[in-house]
Design a protein around this nucleic acid. Structure first.
Lengths: 144, 144
DNA sequence: CCTTTTGTAACTACTTGCGTTACATTAAGG
DNA sequence: CCTTAATGTAACGCAAGTAGTTACAAAAGG
């Protein structure tokens, strides 16, 4: 799993914290600590999944496409993750001995992954915002 | 996660299927479809964890260090995996805004990961052997 | 000794993740 | 219009991880 999920949560979290004001990819990049293009790549996925909306040009930026209370973390996860599998399979030829074991492990992990998905689905972006906002405010006030 | 876990299961699974007979890294490599050195690297970890024993020289090879009914998949997993985390953290600087979210996700995933560990701990190598043996026998008979 | 086998270092090729540059496109506002 | 600000996206570089291979020293048995 790459860091797109963390970036995706950062985006929706920050958009929520700012309460509907459009934020540029540069602002999001600075607060995350990366390059605006990296942010835009994730924004593109979120936009494709219908989670954010984006406007170009002067005064442009991104906003949430719906209320943070109607957006959950599973939706963010599925929007950004192209490979749903946490555990790597054996890339070998079809129906080898190793593939039988590989599939065996895969079945074992499927339940655990579904458990994670259920946990993510149960948390809305609004709830996440309420949880992490105090800590983020503390950090921001310390930086000033 | 790299493929060491699958290779490790292949090793203990094959040693179990052969019933105590020492197998060389070359035999294990052929059945998995890789190079003997790759097998030996994983064998080194398994040996370090006390799961297998190895003898050099003529007639050498590896055997299980204990009964497959007293060895579970979690032990194999922990023997071969150096990074216990399935989900990647944000590698950024200490106490940034992104790190708060990263830790938030990490907490969410910790439960799911523990659930996987519990599943792995509940399955012995012997049980795995019993499950996959029919399929492997079918494949091997088709190859002859 | 001689053969077989492990142990391990070193090298290569390949892939992925992430950052960066560059540039076309879109939109707002004088 | 034209300038400015912003996104969209392709292209490239670099570092790290993964896996395979070669090479050779060391151990063990006959």
């Amino acid at each position: 799993m790459n860091s797109d999920f963390v970036i995706g949560l950062h985006i929706v979290g920050f958009l929520t914290a700012r309460g509907g004001e459009p934020l540029t990819s540069e602002t999001l990049a600075e607060t995350y600590g990366t390059n605006p293009v990296v942010i835009r790549r994730v924004l593109s996925k979120l936009k494709h999944a219908g989670l954010v909306e984006t406007r170009r040009g002067v005064g442009g930026g991104s906003v949430l496409a719906r209320s943070p209370s109607k957006m959950n973390l599973r939706q963010v996860y599925e929007a950004v993750s192209e490979t749903p599998e946490l555990l790597r399979r054996h890339p070998g030829e079809e129906s080898g001995v190793a593939d039988v074991l590989s599939e065996y492990i895969n079945d074992l992990c499927a339940d655990a992954e579904e458990a994670l998905m259920r946990k993510l689905a149960a948390v809305t972006v609004k709830q996440m915002d309420a949880t992490v906002k105090p800590q983020i405010c503390r950090i921001l006030s310390r930086m000033k």
